[in-house]
Amino acid sequence: MTEDMGRLLRDAGDDAGRPLGFALEELVVRGRRRVRVRRSSFAAVAGVAAAGLAASVLTAWPSGTDDSDGSRFATSDDEQLIERCARLDELASAASSTYPTPGEPIDHWTIQVRQADDEAISMILAPDGQREFAYCRLELTGGHAFDAYWRRQYASYIGAPAGATRVGDGEVLWGSGGATSEKIGRMTFETADGEISEAARNGHYFVWQHQTADVEPGEPVWVTFYYAHDGSVADRMRTEPMPGPYDPAPELPDQPRADLPTLDEGVAPEGDAPADAPAPGGPAADAPAPDGPAADAPAPDYPKDCVAWVEPDSRTPTMECS
């Protein structure tokens, strides 16, 4: 059994001689930088403590890049929103460790779909041609604490990851965004308190943002996909920190439930999506499917997956890229 399992695992993990996608010398450079950052971080924290300052937010953005002026964003001001997301993209590019060449700037991309509340706005941005897209969430007050950003090659990113960020003593901001097949007409998200809310959708893209007061960030979120053609449930998946980074069979219900909501009961009708969400059938709706011609276009250098978040035990926003 031991030998068999070992052989199975070795075969399953056979990389067929695939070379490493990174240079070891780059690791050394990054390692040196990490050592420097650790030293400077310790010094900065010590300085704050010595000055007796209150626990104000220490931004993790590179020095001189915090362009917050304290004013609120208008959720309908696309130019301002895109500019802010483009800034995050630049920061992500600079912070990325496995992104050898800068990507195409996103300042000419358009907002495909958005969802907002009083504190934050979540968006999917994409260029013409649908080779890639970006998820961008901005804190509407102009700060950075709730900001999140990542950018993906279209064909490689299908699914509904859900994440959570604590934004107050009891409040948790949930969010998700991405792309699905156009066979999907709508999606709902159910948090652990049983509350069901609707994702905003446009064509392939969706985005979801929701706040809870009684649900901890580690709780699972259930995502239900409904077919566009008849509104029936197409899939239901559970997203949570465990049991793993991806669901091996997302097309199958994790836990079949007899009381799954349908289009006629239990959840808000599609018309209740945020008023500022583009109507279905917008620009992205005419774009090719993931396996269409656009997916064959040369892939940009990826991954470029960056996110800023605030850990529950910290007020320091952090940006990390992979």
């Binding site: 699914g159 509904a160 990851p161 097949s181 580690g218 998946m237 465990m242 793993g244 978040w309």
Partner: peptide, 17 residues
């Protein structure tokens, strides 16, 4: 796997799959 926003589903289109 625990980190927010990294709980991805790397599969192809679930329906096609």
């Amino acid at each position: 796997a625990k980190r927010p926003w990294r709980r991805e589903h790397a599969s192809a289109d679930p329906l096609d799959a």
